[in-house]
Design a protein around this nucleic acid. Structure first.
Length: 565
RNA sequence: UGGGACGUCGCCAAGUGGUAAGGCCCGGGGUUUUGAUCCCCGUAUUCGCAGGUUCGAAUCCUGCCGUCCCAGCCA
């Protein structure tokens, strides 16, 4: 057991950075940035980027800026800029005093645009959006130059300043780079640099601007102004790199950062696009961005994932340029490993079945001393009350034992975890034949000792009926039923694969008394069930609510499945 | 049919001319008052395919095949 972080394995980006340091490129400096657009909550895919950018900065004594890419006020808002900061911080990263907004550079961006115009490298274009599309050509055919491409520098300068002054309506004109309408790279066919947007209140700049720069223009300039050395982004931006470099080569900036692309994370049984996650939230398919079924950082946090487990996950999946879809098991393994080591053990009965121990002295209560962790004494002990009436889980009793079943059966014996061995003598049913109670007898010689002359293989958990505390338990499962819900070949929408059983709420659970004062966000292992987290929602919960983070590995479930295919 | 990228075990992923790391999953065994944990052991004669260069190729060359991305006044 060790809390030492495993060394981060090398990847192609780290190799490039190490080579650059050796070659004294950028004076040996390393500066990265994490540049989210505040138009949604961060998800596990962003965590990969965050761990990469901040991790690299940490390991090479560099710095990593947090910069909001806020150039499209239509889609962005302050709730997102706040949640993003909270999530990055929660993941364990610190941007110090280097919190920036692309909008901090609007004035410099405008000057850079003027510079391009003056150099004859940008022009104001009056084509409509639709016309622009037609003029752009197709993947296989070159585009056609805009009729406004050869406007004079003077006219362009005048028009640009009047765009800024608000003289033109939305969509009437744009500023475009003058590059190459015949380029095989669509991004180089005179890309739009600025568009007009009236009537939106930007969360940072308010109403001071009515023209907004595009990503392809904003990003390289922002990177350069911040002295970024390595600008890491996902694969789909590889085609934009020539434009990124073009902008930096044609505008006066202090340095020329290097853009490097890596592949984004895909996770089985979920979706990762912001558009789809936004849809799930807006349409009420989930309870919000922090719904524990969401792959968002906020969702994982509420589910009970630890920041350590997410960071561990990010280092395990690595960084490469190949298209990948990581199995859920990988993420689950990371949280199991963390919680197995750190979570105190408790007993909780999710589907209670009453057990009466007929030979237990009436009214007697025994206080049992029990370890909080089977391997780690430093987690201490707690006391458990044992009584003649208790609850076990319905799953742990069968009238007829299936093959290899080693829990309680009629006439059979089982060990009550941390307590005695009991035998089931009688099954009490109601008028419908439903089992409502078990009458058992206990062997008083089996507390902390094996029974004489026989072996009892099964061990089940239990809660004293008089000391137990009522609780609600939320059992989560994967949000989608298909491994790749957003790429079905038969034209079905990702929402057609929503898992109807992704949340099962169980209301009348019984948990051991030590759980009574559990605080929001506290995590436990409910023995033989899984890891659970006290729901941290700022709550008006009348009773305790536990979210299931993840089940325990369950080899019995595998056996059972093989027996009843 | 243009351009960009990628193809190493079921899923990730090292490897950068010297004879296929590691993790997850999976299978088998052991310990265990959690069917958990932990501990052993096993799992690619082969790197998309086909040629070529070389004493030697996953690594170099050529050709082919497959997958992903690009035609927002989104990022």
């Amino acid at each position: 057991m060790s809390d030492e972080a495993a060394p981060t394995p090398g990847n192609f980006i780290r190799h490039i950075i190490e080579d650059d340091i050796k070659a004294n490129k950028h004076e040996g400096r390393v500066a990265t940035r994490f540049p989210p657009e505040p138009n949604g909550y961060l998800h596990i895919g962003h965590a990969k980027s965050i761990c990469l950018n901040f991790g690299v900065a940490l390991d090479y004594s560099g710095s990593c800026n947090l910069r909001f890419d806020d150039t499209n006020p239509h889609k962005e808002n302050i709730e997102f800029v706040e949640s993003i900061q909270q999530d990055v911080r929660w993941l364990g990263y610190d941007w110090g005093d280097r919190l920036f907004y692309a909008s901090d550079y609007f004035e410099q961006l405008y000057e850079a645009a003027s510079e391009l115009v003056q150099a004859g490298k940008a022009y104001v274009c009056d084509l409509t959006a639709e016309q622009t599309r037609e003029y752009r050509g197709t993947l296989t055919e070159p585009g056609t130059p805009s009729p406004f491409r050869d406007r004079s520098v003077e006219e362009n300068l005048d028009l640009l300043s009047r765009m800024r002054a608000g003289e033109f309506e939305d969509g009437v004109r744009v500023l475009r780079a003058k590059i190459d309408m015949a380029s095989p790279n669509m991004n180089m066919r005179d890309p739009t640099l600025y568009r007009i947007r009236h009537g939106v209140i930007h969360h940072q700049t308010g109403e001071s601007w009515c023209i907004y720069p595009m990503y392809d223009f904003t990003h390289p300039v922002s990177d350069a102004l911040e002295g970024i050395t390595h600008s890491l982004c996902t694969l789909e931006f590889a085609d934009h790199r020539p434009l990124y470099d073009w902008v930096l080569d044609n505008v006066s900036v202090p340095c020329h950062p290097q853009q490097i692309e890596f592949s984004r994370l895909n996770l089985e049984y979920t979706v990762m696009s912001k558009r789809k996650l936004t849809e799930l939230v807006d349409e009420g398919r989930v309870a919000g961005w922090d719904d524990p079924r969401m792959p968002t950082i906020a969702g994982l946090r509420r589910r009970g994932y630890t920041p350590e487990s997410i960071r561990d996950f990010c280092t395990r999946i690595g960084v490469s340029k190949s298209e990948n879809t990581v199995q859920m098991g990988m993420l689950e393994n990371c949280i199991r490993e963390d919680l197995n080591e750190h979570a105190p053990r408790r007993m909780a009965v999710i589907h209670p079945l009453k057990v009466v121990i007929t030979n237990y002295p009436e009214g007697q209560v025994e206080q049992l001393d029990v370890a909080n962790h089977p391997q780690d004494e430093s987690l201490g002990k707690r006391t458990l009350a044992f009584t003649g009436e208790l609850y076990i889980d319905r799953e742990d009793f069968r009238e007829e034992a299936p093959r290899k079943y080693k829990r309680l059966v009629s006439g059979g014996e089982v060990r009550l975890r941390n307590a005695y061995v009991i035998r089931c003598d009688e099954v009490i049913k109601d008028a419908h034949g439903e089992i409502i109670e078990l009458h058992c007898s206990y062997d008083s010689a089996t507390l902390g000792a094996n029974p004489e002359g026989r072996k009892v293989k099964g061990v089940i958990h239990w809660v004293s009926a008089v000391h137990g505390v009522a609780a609600e338990v939320r059992l989560y499962d994967r949000l989608f039923t298909a491994p790749a819900p957003d790429s079905s070949k038969d034209g079905r929408d990702y929402k057609d694969f929503l898992n109807p059983d992704s949340l099962r709420t169980v209301t009348h659970c019984m948990v051991e008394p030590a759980l009574a004062g559990a605080e929001a966000g506290e995590r436990f292992q409910f023995e033989r069930e899984g890891y659970f987290c006290v729901d941290p929602s700022p709550g008006e919960h009348a009773t305790l609510v536990f979210n299931r983070v993840v089940t325990l590995r369950d080899s019995w479930a595998k056996i059972e499945q093989q027996q009843n295919p």
